[in-house]
Write a protein that binds this DNA or RNA. Sequence first.
DNA 1: AAAGTAACCTGCCCGC
DNA 2: TGCGGGCAGGTTACTT
Length: 278
Amino acid sequence: MPELPEVETIRRDLEKTIIHKKIVKVKIYLPQLIKIPEVNQFIIRLQGNDIEEVRRRGKYLLFFLNTDDYFVIHLGMSGQLSYQYQSSELPEKKGKHDHVFLLFEDGSQLIYNDVRKFGKMWLLSKEREMPAIELLGLDPFGLDFSFEKFFNILRKSHRNIKSLMMNQRKIAGIGNIYANEILFIAGIRPLRKASSLTKKEAERVFLSIKDVLSSAIQLRGTTMVDKSYRDLDGNWGKYEKELLVYGKRKGKCPYCGQSLKMIRIENRSTFYCCACQK
DNA sequence: AAAGTAACCTGCCCGC
DNA sequence: TGCGGGCAGGTTACTT
């Protein structure tokens, strides 16, 4: 589910709520979620420590502790974090898909909920970068995300532009919804070979990436009708109203009125207008 | 070696 | 009303 704008929205909210709070208790009901280290070690190294900083890399959230450790969450397709301000001592009111509870000193708690269980968590020493994160490509909001670098990535690629944009090793954070929207606004067909884009076309894609992602962050992400994405307070993102093509089966192009095409690229639904996208 | 497919999961929607 | 198939915002491992 969550792509860069949703993860960034959650990160910003976490920054306002859990920073400098001491974790007094950790409860894990789904051990398979924890990839590194063993569940018991994971709990022991979290309990009694403060979260000092929350960062984002691509779709990963990184929580830096006051110790030598940091922990990492990837929300997968359906992972959600929610923050409960007032709560009882023990997090015993467990919903069906609540898998992890972090109880803070002030009685508030952070709950990880995940219907499909594709999410993952790690706890690592700060000296060690997580392999999956090390392999990530440029972050669209990183200082090093320049047009020159972007254009070079396109030129070296042998793949279509949509697959390239969704390849986390090239550009980190773009998923299926935003890839569709970005290409529509840039006027580029998703199946165009990335290396075939002219400099002007690449510039349009580059600018659309920044535009679409920052507008989506502004509106706190996209919650589709299935309502699976929520922010820390349980509220929906409001970018769905802005979507121009994604999810619009039998829809019309908002620019020219022609029927939108729906194809599959790497088994993901892909929407575009064959008149407006070249 | 790139590209396709299956796997990991649950829930919802649709057609029969 | 029920059942089967397809689909969902992601990633990885395995197969062609």
